[in-house]
């Protein structure tokens, strides 16, 4: 059964049509004690079916420890949005509701699409300040599905 409505699929396909470079989603799961891992997999399977530029790889956090290590992920389900390199974008939890929209936005931006879902990109002032950062910055944004 499809999780997305036909209208949503059309809308997402249209958005993905603006992707420039390939994007790889890495989904971190584990076999036991992760109820929402299945939901996360279903959502991502549907998403990657909507674009040739989008691929999905599933990594078992417990069984594929070595493979998972470079991503610095310690919870499941988690998603890393990867471009040519690792832009450092992670999602913790099944990407439904608000997270779904944010994930679409992240995919578009990482692919180099001219616009994400937001109206404008960051201001020149923000870009200048961010470019001057000289130590690791870990930003966690807590959200709920609604």
């Amino acid at each position: 059964m499809s999780l997305l409505s036909d209208a949503d699929r059309r809308k997402v396909s249209e958005l993905f049509g603006t992707m420039v470079n390939p994007v790889r989603l890495v989904l971190f799961t584990q076999s036991l004690g992760c109820e929402s891992c299945t939901l996360a997999r279903q959502i991502l399977d549907e998403l990657v079916s909507l674009s040739d530029k989008l691929t999905l790889e599933e990594v078992n956090l417990v069984l594929d420890k070595d493979k998972a290590a470079p991503y610095g992920v310690d919870r499941v389900p988690a998603i890393a949005v990867m471009g040519a390199g690792d832009p450092g974008i992670r999602f913790y939890g099944a990407p439904s509701g608000y997270e779904f929209t944010s994930l679409l936005d992240a995919i578009l931006l990482v692919s180099g699409a001219e616009h994400g879902l937001g109206a404008d990109g960051l201001s020149e002032d923000t870009l200048a300040r961010v470019a001057a950062i000289d130590e690791p910055v870990d930003i966690q944004v807590f959200v709920t599905p609604t």
Binding site: G72, P87, G88, I89, R90, F91, Y92, G93, A94, E99, S102, L103, L109, V110, L122, T126, L127, V130, A131, I133, D134, E135, P136, V137, D138, I139, Q140, V141, F142, V143, T144, P145
Partner: peptide, 13 residues
């Protein structure tokens, strides 16, 4: 996060 290699951004449900 895209604008700086130093930034890591995580959305937590």
């Amino acid at each position: 996060a895209l604008a700086s290699d130093h930034i890591r951004a995580t959305v937590v449900e």
